[in-house]
Design a protein around this nucleic acid. Structure first.
Lengths: 117, 117
DNA sequence: ACAAAGTATTCCTTGACGGGAATATACCCC
DNA sequence: GGGGTATATTCCCGTCAAGGAATACTTTGT
């Protein structure tokens, strides 16, 4: 998780990731598109690869780098644990909403029991 | 976005955020719980505050720090743009699935046309 | 085998960041 | 208002990471 954040914390690496959203690209293409020197592109891609954010496919003498899903999934899973904080609901209303839900469920149960009994 | 990643990239700041998931806490409580010296806690909280990940509430001479939703929401929104990559589907199977869906739709259309005609 | 294209690695320098220690600031209570 | 508590800030130092330049490696085509 921290490695993911570290990898994405660098502006140029972030740009690379954003760029790769358009599909896998070669090192040269990335450098040209983002106006970066080739060595720095390779170095950033190394960090991204170690963070499992990208993988490589050899294509002749080129290397095509593309995004990988795992770290993004983990990021999403991590974020889920904070749902109570960032989700639409404004916190204060939480308990109220939960209360209403509970009331609904209780009402439904009463309803079901009535039918049965 | 990058500021969010930067803030969360530091191990101790990450730990602080995780700890605050349990609710707002004072600087002293954070330091004690995570075994950090008070000045470093204050410094990390400063970074987190500038990244809008936390806010402060004065309580006597204590300061209660709590999580804020905005950056987490932004993170979620950013992640959404990568859904095609990290969502359940395993990438390679994507086109196949899309194909099947299309076939289903075509079948449904044929079906509908038959009924109509 | 050689030349060229594409990429990776190394070396160096510099700036930013985190931790420790000391100090400053704000608030409370008597 | 002085002393104590809680937090913020400053200074210093060591480390680490990013960029530039040069170089090494690998694959391809002839």
């Amino acid at each position: 998780m921290i490695e993911t954040f570290t990898a994405l914390a660098d502006p140029n690496r972030f740009r690379i990731v954003e760029y790769l959203l358009g599909g896998a690209r070669s090192v040269g293409a990335i450098g040209e598109a983002l106006n970066l020197n080739q060595p720095q592109v390779s170095k950033h891609l190394r960090v991204l690869k170690e963070a499992r954010l990208v993988d490589v496919e050899a294509r002749a003498q080129q290397r095509l780098y593309g995004l990988r899903p795992e770290p993004l999934r983990e990021l999403n899973a991590w974020l889920e644990r904070y749902r109570d904080i960032w989700d639409e609901r404004l916190g204060q209303l939480d308990s109220l909403i939960e209360e209403l839900k509970t009331q609904d469920m209780e009402a439904a149960q009463r309803h079901a029991r009535k039918k049965k009994g």
